[in-house]
């Protein structure tokens, strides 16, 4: 079940999106997230989704790969959607049965919220799928360098993030393995109430943490052995350089943001 997560995985391909400067992509993602929350109408959301669709096409990452990432959070989406659907008060009651009431506002906010979440997840995974963690790190490091003035350890934070991203697939695979092993010892993760289920996670979580700490320890040693010594005096294998395509992308991003604000004001 965890194998389907795509967030944090890199999909190697040769596309314009892959070649973009990570700073451009990070900025684009930020604007994208902001616009998702600016727009609060279903048609506006569909426009954003269409824009996202176009970006995915350019990225050359198979669409099915993106959708797979959603599968892991379907339950979460459904719960959130249902809460919105039934618990939002509104003027017009569309449906009423026992304690369940659906209002027009509820329907709208549930639809909006679901699309918003899906678009948000896919949108951010487009960035991680087309950007290697290392260049993502570089992007964050350069983009946020001004923060070092305030003594924020930007290099360290970005290095930690990129390593976390690299180990997500490994830890997911490991979770899968541990789950199977405990199932082979008769563990049951499906039945029982919430408390029972939470308790049944202990045999998965403890070994997972133990292994994560061991890996962290090994990795730290391996990094030290390769002369890692923090950000000072480091050079870059792939230094960031803006190209023409980045300028075009920035223009696109601002046009997109402008459209969203216009849609918000006009619709």
């Amino acid at each position: 079940m965890f194998r389907n997560m795509t967030l944090g995985q890199y999909y190697p391909a040769d596309s314009i999106l892959h070649r973009l400067d990570p700073r451009t992509k990070l900025f684009g993602t930020l604007i994208f997230i902001i616009s998702i929350f600016i727009v609060d109408s279903v048609p506006g959301m569909l426009v954003i989704a269409a824009f996202l669709g176009a970006v995915i096409l350019i990225s050359k990452v198979p669409f099915s790969f993106m959708v797979k990432g959603i599968r892991g959070i379907v339950v979460l989406l459904m719960i959130a959607g249902l809460f919105n659907l039934f618990l939002t008060p509104g003027d017009k009651i569309l449906f009423h049965f026992g304690i369940l009431t659906i209002t027009d506002a509820g329907l709208k906010s549930a639809t909006l919220m679901t699309i918003r979440m899906i678009v948000l997840i896919i949108g951010t995974s487009v960035m991680t799928l087309t950007t290697t963690p290392n260049s993502l790190t570089d992007g964050l490091e350069k983009g946020l360098r001004f923060l070092t003035v305030f003594r924020v350890p930007v290099h360290e934070i970005s290095m930690m993030m990129s390593i976390a991203l690299r180990f997500i697939p490994i830890l997911i695979e490991e979770t899968d393995k541990i789950m199977k092993a405990q199932m082979a010892r008769g563990a049951d993760f499906e039945s029982g109430g919430i408390f029972q289920k939470a308790k049944s996670m202990v045999p998965i979580l403890v070994p997972l943490f133990v292994s994560a700490f061991r890996r962290a320890n090994d990795l730290a040693l391996a990094m030290e052995a390769r002369c890692y010594n923090g950000g000072d005096g480091r050079t870059n294998m792939k230094p960031l350089k803006y190209a023409g395509i980045d300028a075009i992308s920035y223009v696109c991003i601002f046009v997109f943001l402008g459209t969203c604000i216009a849609a918000k004001v006009l619709l």
Partner: peptide, 19 residues
């Protein structure tokens, strides 16, 4: 698994020289 730092082979090989 526990000594490869980067998510792409060439970037991992470049890690030492960068340092």
């Amino acid at each position: 698994d526990n000594q490869i730092i980067a998510s792409v082979v060439e970037e991992d090989v470049g890690f030492g020289p960068e340092n």
